[in-house]
Nucleic acid binder design. Sequence first.
DNA 1: TAAATCATCGACCGACGGTCGATGAGACGG
DNA 2: CCGTCTCATCGACCGTCGGTCGATGATTTA
Lengths: 207, 207
Amino acid sequence: MKTVKEGEVRKQEILMVARELFVTKGYEQTSVNDILKIVDIAKGTFYYYFASKEEVLAAIILDIVEEGAKRAERILKDKSVPLVNRIMMAIMAQSPEFEGSEEIRDEMHKVDNAKLEQLYTKAMLKRMTPLLETAVAEGVAADLFHLDYPRETIESILLLGHMLFDCNIMDWEMADYPAKIKGFLANMERMLGTGAGELEDFLQMFA
Amino acid sequence: MKTVKEGEVRKQEILMVARELFVTKGYEQTSVNDILKIVDIAKGTFYYYFASKEEVLAAIILDIVEEGAKRAERILKDKSVPLVNRIMMAIMAQSPEFEGSEEIRDEMHKVDNAKLEQLYTKAMLKRMTPLLETAVAEGVAADLFHLDYPRETIESILLLGHMLFDCNIMDWEMADYPAKIKGFLANMERMLGTGAGELEDFLQMFA
DNA sequence: TAAATCATCGACCGACGGTCGATGAGACGG
DNA sequence: CCGTCTCATCGACCGTCGGTCGATGATTTA
């Protein structure tokens, strides 16, 4: 039988299902037919809304990045919290790691999803850098940070945070994490030019 | 007609052709048939030597990483050069960027090659970190560097260098590069704990 | 020279991403 | 109330892909 829905509704259905599958099974490992079966539509309908499987991926990545940026923005805006805390929390909250159930997150790390990862990294940097740039500028003005290349430093911190902890490329033992996190925080302190040890308090945030 | 060759020779032929194609056209965009046509063998022969297309990719990446590591090792060994210079040169020479013709390099950046990139990054970090770890330890002993997490810091520097300058994910204007390079060197100084400005001389190395 | 081993062949397979012309459903004007 | 028009849906079909396999040619060994 033919079930007709308004265009935007169908589009969102496809996006929702595809996102779930791409994240849990991997982009390459998810076939268009997998999506069709769950949304319960024919192939023609899928290609009526999207020009290609890759276009769906691009749309999903935009969504994920935007959601992360919104979470970060909300945190950054709350002036009742000390600036350093806001920045740390924004960087952490931005990560899609902190969405969804624990099971999904575990699955995510097993799957090879190079294309999704690469596109996400690119889009995330583009979206997040300006947000943190204003925050860091605030810190420089308040004499909390001392650095010459704020934009480049933010890019580096975001990139490192993502590649080291979110991305699935580092296969570390659980026992390695404390050192990795301490190292990351220590280097973050040095790059931002805070007083040494000023970021150590955030160690327990990585739990 | 059937042309018989010794196993290892054929294997290297396949590897050579596949590498050229993967790097210039991209891994996904290169079909096994593309390789077959150039090596001039039948499908069965390809799968007689490799279990899958992906196995060929893995072998190629191992080769590329190993070649880079060898270049780095040679440089690191030359004690007539100041340690800091050796380290900087090793990090640069390790990159596959500095192999091959300029045209191939240009093509490389246009192609989407997420899978190759991701596997390469992982393998390169694993292979290069120990090399630089001993070099940095030498620098610490000589009071040139001052840092608490040498391994983590090296990982970060390698990762940043690769992601910012070798990988194709950052689409910068030519005009952005000076700031990006200066920023990278400044952060490297801070992470390693050298005297400020000690790495500035290496700016012209990025040409 | 017969047998055993190694290397090569290409027809074939199922699954994939994507195309397209036919057709159903709902809105709207007369 | 019906004809028409548009939007949404359908699924058979297509070329290509990565991968399989049994047959067979070439080479080495006994």
